[in-house]
Design a protein around this nucleic acid. Structure first.
Lengths: 235, 235
DNA sequence: CTCGCATAGATCGAATACAATATAAGTAAG
DNA sequence: CTTACTTATATTGTATTCGATCTATGCGAG
């Protein structure tokens, strides 16, 4: 009996890591909605642990930008406004461009084949969330070839925060699948011909397109120019 | 009597914020050296608090990259290897360039005057750490004009981590003060003439120079090519 | 003499208990 | 009827206690 509990615990080196991973998954999967308060006691009970590791897990997620702390009011799933989504897009482009520039000279044909495989899988994937995952893997793998762990972390962290939005516009993602795939094709081709400038240009196009899709989705529900800005923004 | 204690506490909204700020200052000022273990109980005693807020403060600093956690081994002040310093430099350039590009079109003459003031102060500053501070303020203020809070945070966080290194090479910083100031002059001039490309180019030069100074300092103590890499790097 | 193992001390991590703060409901005055 | 204040409750934040893991010292076998 105790062994079973120990086994589950053993899969993570500490309890807080387990809780952090669980919460991260919950947030990114949409089980917790944006702006939703995360009650420490409730979470502790759900995971069958005490509040201490929960609090520290939340702190960790706060560092990743997924949740936001307010003194004596606890943590809520981060909400991002239009301005923040744009800002994250700008930063992502900047960092992924850097990664791609560093990666292109190093990249080998085997490396590219690995990305091509993901590209092919994405091409024949019809499920929305699976496709989004493969899209992200495409970027992730490419960035990894840069061999810059800290940069990689930052990009992944930004992507995770960004995903809080992407999820709501998954329909748009599928609608624009053809365009998205063509852009990825452009990136791959540029990488293969070792043309870093072209690759970065294609990447910028790709990421901005994704943002435009989200924007289109948002505008369907609220006008960012008017009270939507107040609504989408916080404070 | 109780009011006094309350007043001290009141300056911070929560205890962990106070501890986090205190530790951050301690780390950046060099009171805690790189690689030094941060004993929770000792810190708690020093601050006159319990371990709980200390642990959460450390978690927060971990999110900022200033300390590193290892399961059941606690937190140590982050060490950065040559590779990481270079990586941070690359990322800083990328992000500060983005900020500068966004700032240039918005920047007003009054804004520039504000930076000029810092520039002048730096010119007549002889104290090493004060000069380093003013240098950083120069960059910080310029980036702020971009009006991108998240970007600003990331840049500040990177700078803080970077400072763990810059400190050791402050002599080099002073030695190259003339060059540094000239580069800052270039940046300012480019901003004034609204030439974003030139400003970014000057900025890149400036940040890479700073890295070269550190590199020169490091090479005086260890050869990064040989066992120094093993020594400086980890894992 | 070296290597491996066992045991003890120190330190971290988690659970529990307690105090401080914010939110909301309810009441009384204007 | 509205508004301001009081009070009750829920929730966070901090302290304390307990248990688990790591590190170092010492002992014995090879």
């Amino acid at each position: 009996m105790k062994d079973l509990a120990a086994t589950v615990a053993r899969r993570y080196r500490t309890t807080q890591d387990m809780v952090a991973d669980g919460l991260r998954q919950g947030i990114l999967s949409g089980a917790f909605k944006s702006g939703q308060p995360l009650r420490q006691e409730q979470i502790a009970e759900d995971f069958g642990v005490s509040k201490s590791p929960v609090r520290e897990a939340l702190r960790q997620l706060a560092g990743e930008g997924l949740v936001t702390f307010s003194p004596h009011r606890g943590a809520v799933v981060s909400e991002i406004s239009y301005e923040e989504a744009r800002e994250i897009t700008e930063i992502r482009i900047s960092l992924e461009s850097l990664a791609l520039r560093l990666a292109v000279p190093k990249i080998t044909e085997e490396d590219l084949e690995q990305v091509e495989e993901v590209f092919r899988l994405a091409g024949s994937e019809e499920d929305i969330s699976h496709y989004a995952n493969l899209c992200w893997q495409f970027h992730e793998i490419l960035c990894a070839f840069a061999g810059r762990p800290r940069l990689q972390n930052m990009i992944e962290s930004l992507h995770a925060t960004y995903d809080l939005y992407v999820r709501v516009s998954s329909r748009e993602v599928m609608r624009n699948k053809v365009r998205s795939q063509r852009q990825h094709r452009d990136i791959l081709d540029a990488c293969r011909s070792k043309d870093a400038n072209a690759a970065v240009k294609a990447l910028e196009h790709n990421i901005w397109s994704a943002f435009d899709e989200i924007l289109a989705h948002m505008e369907r529900f609220e006008d960012p120019g008017e009270d939507g800005a107040r609504k989408a923004g916080y404070k």
